[in-house]
Design a protein around this nucleic acid. Structure first.
Length: 640
RNA sequence: GGUCCCGUAGCUCAGCUGGAUAGAGCAACUGCCUUCUAAGCAGUAGGUCUUUGGUUCGAAUCCAAACGGGAUCACCA
């Protein structure tokens, strides 16, 4: 088992300072003065003690204090070989033995950096959960890679993890596609309507096509309704709607452009509800809820197409799920909890029968949790689903929701409600909120056709990787199959790394050209370095060396230090729900190794002790790179 | 307007709970393949960390305000 010597040394130094401090400095040491940090890059030393707090208390200059402490520590602590005082910072230099022992310890640890499986509590990670009316796009890619990677991170950190997604298989959106398909899908020669099987179209793409079709017809009808209204023809229109329309029309006067646009949107909304096609879709939803056999069959057929399509996409992404929650099963959940909460005074009821929660004391608004007609809203469902999950998994301690930051408010409210209902685990639920992915041309908008389709993008990225790898890869010995896998690994690795390397919380820019780059801060750069080490190790296989007689120099120490930081990097990335932390670490390690590789002969080194240390070091760098990439969901090819 | 998030090099991003001279990658320029994979390495150039106050030995980091960008404020999900 690997022991983080760094950490142990820090504790040891702290103990010595506390016990001997008075003797050395003449005053009692306040533990809060003792602040260590890794020594700054480019400065000699391994760990740095801040001496400012001491200097202040002792009324001495930092340099004087540092000198006094340094002298004593050097003479009394075996692993401190030297010390240096620069600008009031006290830098301790650890002995070479210390570092070579560290390397040996890392080497002897099988899954270095990975915590004992299931040593920490169980968490559920929800991600993906797309709507079924449209194919997956770039935004989903960020969501899915992020969620999957956080699940991997939690596992590596010792948690038991349940990966889950909610299948949004009910609601008006799927009815829209169903209706449009029923009305407009061309009849094939065999008498069937268009299906994935007879058209060769991916299921999600096909259903998405009819959703668009629906929207097209809807827009046309809206136009008709509006022009009728403008002409003063309100036949077949409810008087409430007419009043509302005229009211909004009046409100237009004297408003600026922005306010007018908002009002126009509302008018459009009114007109939408007056269209035949939307009414037909709503009827369909009612029939679905009433379990009308024909509607139900169509629904399950078309849903099936979508999931078959999504499965293909997930498979290429390399992600999976342990447990699925179907909205069609869970949409009735939560009502009981709401009624129970109502009885306990957590919620209150308005005269129309709708149920609300007043969150104004918490600085939020009043929020509807159940409609007047007793049907559930989004919030009701989420309350129910969360509770259901804790029933399904009694050992569960928290849920991570990978959902875009436009829902920050929703989750804030959800967690608060759960807490008010008395569920202590609400404190361990976390909204993994990520920023939007923008394009160089701006925001993705389906209406303007600027949405980047997930399947298309993956195809493109793999194609680009194929071209580049055929050009410069060392692939002569690979079979056709192996090549195919390699291109896939490189293309997808580049894409995943590109989306994961930035802080999830932040909005990010997706530059198509950069995403297929193979140089610089990219996935393929790390993969390449891993492959190159493997090539080296294949050749080193023949060389005998003695692992107990290692010799190391400054360059090796720098790398060992980085390797030793792997476990704490995983811990940090896991607790911050940030694969980006890990990605940046891997990049640092890769850069450091490449620099080392370029200036130090490894197999060609004549000094056997040095050569042994360098081979061992290379082996462990490769080990960490592979393990780290795996957590990011990225393959680490043996050669490329 | 209320609430929340963001503002670091031409561009894209790192900078952890305050610490030394603010770092990478891309783009630009200069070098390095008859030694282990050049998808690499070494170097040059590029910064009032949006602004102004405050806290402190010490601020890109913490606090406040202003400015700029975004999200959200549905009986949609």
């Amino acid at each position: 088992m690997y022991t983080d010597l760094n950490r142990i040394m820090e504790i040891a130094l702290k103990d010595i300072l506390l016990s001997k401090g008075k003797e050395w400095l003449g005053i009692d040491i306040n533990p809060s003065w003792i602040q260590f940090q890794p020594t700054r890059k480019g400065v000699r030393g391994d760990i740095t003690l801040m001496v400012f707090p001491f200097a202040k208390a002792l009324q001495l200059t930092p340099a004087e204090v540092a000198e006094r402490i340094g002298k004593h520590v050097k003479s009394e602590v075996s692993f401190v070989a030297d010390y240096e005082v620069i600008q009031g910072f006290l830098n301790f230099v650890f002995s070479k033995i210390f570092w070579s022992d560290q390397l040996i310890s890392i080497n002897q640890t099988d899954s270095f950096g990975i915590s004992e499986p299931n040593s920490k509590h169980m968490v559920m990670v929800e991600y993906a959960s797309p709507n079924t009316n449209k194919p997956l796009h770039l935004g989903h890619l960020r969501n899915i890679f992020l969620g999957y990677s956080v699940a991997q991170l939690k596992k590596a950190h010792g948690h038991q993890v349940i990966k889950t997604q909610v299948i949004n298989d009910r609601g008006i959106h799927i009815c829209k596609s169903m209706l449009a398909w029923h009305r407009y899908a061309p009849i094939q020669s065999n008498g069937e309507r268009e299906t994935p099987a007879n058209s060769g179209l991916k299921g999600d793409k096909l259903v998405g096509k009819y959703y668009v079709e629906f929207e097209k017809h809807l827009q046309l009808e809206v136009k008709e309704v509006l022009s009728r209204w403008d002409a003063g023809d309100f036949s077949n229109t409810a008087s409430v709607t007419v009043d509302k329309f005229q009211e909004l029309n009046k409100a237009l006067e004297g408003k600026d452009e922005k306010a007018q646009a908002a009002i126009y949107d509302k008018i459009k909304e009114l007109a939408k509800n007056e269209t035949e096609i939307l009414r037909a879709a709503k009827d369909m939803l009612v029939r679905w809820e009433g379990r009308d056999p024909e509607t139900y069959l169509l629904w399950s057929t078309m849903n099936g197409w979508v999931y078959d399509g999504f499965d293909v996409t997930y498979k290429r992404m390399g992600v999976d799920f342990d447990k699925l929650y179907y909205e069609s099963d869970t949409f009735l959940l939560g009502k009981d909890q709401v009624m129970d909460g109502l009885a306990r005074g957590v919620f209150y009821q308005k005269p129309d029968g709708s149920v609300w929660i007043d969150l104004t004391p918490d600085g939020l608004d009043e929020k509807l949790v159940l409609r007047a007609d007793g049907t559930a809203v989004y919030m009701t469902q989420d309350i129910g689903t969360a509770i259901e999950r804790f029933h399904d998994y009694p050992a569960l301690s928290g849920i991570v929701y990978t959902v875009g930051n436009e829902q920050d408010y929703h989750f804030k409210v959800l967690f608060l409600i759960l807490q008010k209902l008395g569920y202590t685990w609400a404190a361990d639920c976390y909204h993994l909120s990520y920023g939007m992915v923008d394009l160089p041309s701006g925001k993705m908008k389906s209406r303007e056709g600027t949405v980047v389709d997930a399947d298309d993008l993956m195809e493109e990225v793999v194609n680009a990787a194929t071209v580049m790898t055929q050009e410069r890869g060392q692939i002569a010995e690979l079979t056709e199959d192996e090549r195919h896998n390699l291109f896939e690994s490189i293309g997808m690795g580049g894409l995943k790394y590109y989306l994961l390397k930035v802080d999830p919380k932040k909005r990010m820019l997706f530059n198509p050209e950069e995403s297929i780059d193979l140089t610089g801060n990219t996935g393929p750069f790390i993969q390449y370095t891993h492959a190159r080490i493997n090539s080296l190790l294949r050749k080193a296989g023949l060389i005998q060396f003695d692992k107990s007689a290692l010799e190391i120099e400054a360059g090796e120490i720098e790398l060992i230090k980085l390797l030793a930081a792997f476990p704490q990097t995983i811990a940090e990335a896991s607790s911050n729900y940030s694969p980006a932390v890990l990605a940046n670490y891997l990049f640092e390690l890769t850069k450091a190794y490449n620099s080392f590789y370029q200036q130090s002969p490894i197999l060609n080194e004549i000094n056997p002790g040095l050569r042994a240390a360098r081979i061992l070091l290379s082996e462990n760098v490769a080990k960490v790179l592979k393990s780290g990439l795996n957590i990011l969901g990225i393959n680490a090819p043996e050669r490329m």
